[in-house]
Nucleic acid binder design. Structure first.
Lengths: 197, 197
DNA sequence: TCGTCATATGTACACTGTAAACTTTTTCTT
DNA sequence: AAGAAAAAGTTTACAGTGTACATATGACGA
């Protein structure tokens, strides 16, 4: 029973699921992955410790939702780079810069997106967005490198080559595995040899 | 006071640190990263729950030690490939196959080795072995790709290119991000375009 | 023989994920 | 409009976890 209708906190949050996800995401990037807990998320949103259970079956479900969000945004980052340009070569470069930019903007989330253990990799919604990224990568990978063989195999190789390269670069960059002196004024485009296409 | 000297368990383990590391490594690959706990390691070795504290300041220290072991073995995998052959091109290929082979043999450990959060990346022993891998990669990266610029920059680019490519491939492979149909009878060498050198 | 020190144990505590029972609010049916 | 059903909160409970701290044990040199 609510007396003061002005500033009384409602029993039902309204959009707790979304609020938990944004809180989780902030905690993930600020506190780090190992300090992220459901209870902290609940606390940040101002709700009881077990309220998240109504929206996420378990912690893995929340992490999976976070990862799914990540893939969706990664696609957006790439598409934005693509949409800004007209010709194939420039679009490709923009998409690659967008990919790495996403990883740099969300390093902890990016790591989570490729964690074998913490996310449920059989989640259909997750895999849908993974596939979305894959399609974009497939598109910008066409006519990349001088691979040989039948067309299907060549396209698969081009795609795997580009994704391996950009993913490896993004992760080694955000994990600080490159020498700092080497990184001066360098980006992903600098480490791609001038291939035909 | 030990009465039965035959099968009485000694109070001091003897080499608990080493035993904990091997137990941790087994648990890491079998149970998965998120189910690895110090207490389980202690239990697996048959020692009290807090005994590990005498050998590892905290859990991060144990994980860091695991990652350090990982880099040392990764270097061994690559060197083995290198030592088996004479000419530069074949050695390079063997080293790359060795790199990916290590990741496939130890997927959970490999992921840990690039985790931003769980390992203390300022550990000197860890970084020594990271550097060891970097040197090997630098060696096999020479004369790779048609990069341009001054020699130092070119070598840095070659190195970053090769490491990005092989790391990205290894992780995407072990994280099941490639289409299975594309992976049929394919390996890291198939996705490297035929560059000069 | 006796301290000293490394190495083990036991206890304690705050924090975590999750299950279960309960309460409050909304929504749907009639 | 009323009441049942469902949705979305709360509280309580419990087994595990990392870690701090006090204590016990044994190895070993002085």
């Amino acid at each position: 029973m609510t007396i003061n209708t002005k500033d009384a906190k409602p029993y039902h949050h309204g959009n707790l699921k979304h609020a938990l996800l944004t809180a989780a995401r902030r905690l993930l990037e600020t506190e780090g992955h190992s300090d992220l807990s459901l209870r902290k998320c609940a606390n940040a949103v101002g709700v009881s410790a077990t309220a998240p259970q109504n929206h996420f079956a378990n912690k893995a479900a929340l992490l999976t939702a976070l990862a799914t969000q990540g893939y969706a945004e990664l696609a957006t980052y790439m598409r934005q780079g693509i949409d800004e340009h007209a010709d194939r070569g420039t679009r490709r470069k923009a998409a690659l810069l967008g990919y790495v930019g996403f990883a740099q903007d969300n390093p902890a989330l990016y790591e989570l997106m490729f964690a074998r253990d913490r996310v449920a990799s059989n989640d259909p919604e997750l895999m849908r967005h993974v596939g979305e990224c894959f399609v974009i990568l497939a598109d910008i990978s066409k006519a990349f490198g001088n691979f040989e063989g039948e067309i299907n195999k060549v396209e698969a190789k081009q795609q795997m080559f580009v994704w391996s390269l950009v993913h490896g670069y993004a992760q080694l960059l955000t994990a600080n595995r490159f020498k700092k002196s080497d990184m001066l004024e360098m980006n992903i485009l600098d480490i791609i040899p001038d291939l035909r296409g």
